[in-house]
Design a protein around this nucleic acid. Structure first.
Length: 474
RNA sequence: GGCGGCGUAGCCAAGUGGUUAGGCGGUGGAUUGCAAAUCCAUGAACCCCGGUUCGAAUCCGGGCGCCGCCUCCA
């Protein structure tokens, strides 16, 4: 099976072939930890998680690295205004130093990853722990003539890298035509970008050959990726807003420094809107994972909703969308609860056929640039077919069915197998169910409904089926 | 102004030249003490205008609308 991915570098869907056979080196542009990650951030990270799961399911060994940006960044505007960056603002608001702020939000981020059932990456490098390597790379660029020093600042000279623009289409010429770049008299060209900056007002400072300062905002990713994965990586991911200038600049500085192709596949996730609008705190549609969980949404459903739209498409997340995902998840759980299998029943060829067909359809869709929509349709088609087939499956067929859903879940990670099979019912609840069934037999429906409501209040949902009363936790 | 993306039924969302994907919701039915779950049935569609074609949601041209990036941002 071959995985095809849409490569932003070429704009085409391409067969994925890692440089080293069987081994994938993947770098994900991670969060800036001056605040909680919001659902838009998480969508992009989820794309990377699904990709990693897919590649592993296809037999690749995946070396995944996600950076943690714990250096606040300063823009040129900030320099003019007051020289204050977001990390500094957050630090001031919380009355803490920036390292404590970063630590706090890094931990919150890891909690989010856990709640959303992320696979753990090989490494989560911190920008603040990679400063010497960054300085070394800047020195290398200066000595090769790709960067120049002005005062305490170092800039990358885009004129020395003719391929600038190959990722975003923003070539030096088209940027000039656009004529919206600010003119900084220190720079030789407006598109030149900072590799190292000095600013006495910046809270985080390190010594360097050019005096005290801090790294430019593109250099971190190049350095952290190369420090762990080497100079040539296979896949680099991020949100589409990172495509330019961030990733364009990463390519320029990395390839100018090494003379090698930095990353061969660039994968970008589309922008997430909420309720049809850009997320903004002022609009009240700015959601973090914990906001949604506090509203009672199941993180598995949130994950399912966030990956339900093709990753390259813009996506509009709605609360209805999460409800829909929750409902579909529940359909799978409902089916699997009754798919227990009975010894002695004959195997049914149509069950094996349905499972095989669903698996093929699912895999084909996911291999096609992670096309989740048909993949999800394959999952739900299998649910429908099995519901139609009835519950009297042989033990072997039941195991086959469960194995098929486990395969889906291994790639989607939405908790398909994470259902309550009703084994640990307390004797008290059991007694109430018995009492209710007695009342039903006596046609005392007022009493039976009272008991059902009482259990519902404790989060236990009863269902009366042909084979007796079953229950599940809400 | 430059670079890029999107417009499919009440909602979400595949498809991308000819055979009504799928889901959520709605409606009718089966089942049920009533529900739930499940099954069966069912309506509704391709932003607009031209063009190519036997045939276009799908290709081409022109509009309109929405969104992202060009300042940190997934």
């Amino acid at each position: 099976m071959t995985v095809f991915l849409t490569n932003s570098l070429t704009g085409r869907k391409e067969e994925f072939v890692p440089r080293v056979p069987g081994e994938v080196r993947m770098y994900n542009c991670g969060p800036t930890v001056y605040n909680y990650a919001h659902v838009g951030n998480l969508r992009a990270f989820l794309m990377a998680d699904v990709l990693r799961r897919l590649l592993e399911a296809r037999g690749f060994e995946v070396r995944q690295v996600m950076n943690i940006t714990d250096v606040g960044h300063m823009t040129e505007d900030d320099i003019r205004d007051a020289g204050e960056d977001k990390m500094a603002v957050a630090a001031k608001e919380l009355g803490k130093d920036p390292y404590e702020v970063a630590k706090f939000f890094t931990e919150a981020f890891f909690a989010d990853l856990k709640a959303l059932n992320f696979q753990e990456a090989e490494a989560y490098p911190r920008a603040t722990e990679t400063i010497p390597e960054m300085i070394a790379m800047v020195e290398r660029l200066v000595s090769k003539g790709n960067a120049y020093v002005v005062g305490g600042n170092v800039y990358f000279d885009v004129a020395t890298f003719p391929e600038y623009g190959k990722l975003s289409g923003n070539t030096v010429a088209s940027l000039k035509a656009g004529a919206r770049l600010e003119v900084n008299p220190e720079k030789r060209h407006p598109a030149d970008f900072a590799l190292w900056k000095s600013d006495p007002q910046h809270i985080m400072q390190w010594d360097s050959p050019w005096g005290p300062g801090f790294p430019g905002w593109h250099i971190e990713c190049s350095v952290m990726a190369q420090a762990i994965l080497g100079e040539e990586i296979d896949i680099h991911t991020g949100g589409e807003d990172n495509r330019f200038p961030h990733h364009e600049c990463e390519i320029a500085q990395s390839e100018a420094a090494t003379g090698k192709t930095f990353a061969r596949y660039w994968i970008h996730t589309g922008y997430l809107q909420v309720g049809g609008e850009k997320m903004a705190k002022s609009k009240g549609n700015f959601f973090t994972l914990r906001d949604l969980m506090e509203k009672g949404y199941d993180p598995r459903a949130i994950r399912a909703a966030l990956i339900s739209v093709h990753y390259r498409q813009p996506m509009n997340l709605t609360l209805d969308g999460i409800d829909e995902a929750a409902k579909n998840l529940e359909r799978v759980h409902e089916l699997l609860r009754k798919t227990t299998g009975t010894d002695g029943l004959p195997d049914r060829p149509e069950v094996a056929e349905a499972a095989a067909r669903a698996r093929n359809d699912f895999d084909a869709a996911m291999d096609d640039d992670m096309n989740v929509s048909p993949a999800r349709a394959a999952v739900l088609a299998l649910v429908s077919e099995l519901n139609r087939a009835g519950a009297d499956l042989s033990t072997a067929d039941a195991n086959l069915v469960r194995g098929t859903f486990a395969h889906f879940d291994g790639i989607l990670g939405t908790g398909l197998m994470d259902f309550d099979d009703g084994e640990d019912l307390s004797t008290e609840v059991e007694a109430l169910i018995e009492a209710r069934n007695a009342a039903r037999k006596a046609k005392d429906f007022a009493e039976s409904d009272r008991i059902r409501d009482e259990l519902a209040g404790r989060g236990i949902i009863l269902s009366d089926g042909a084979g007796g009363t079953t229950w599940k936790r809400k």
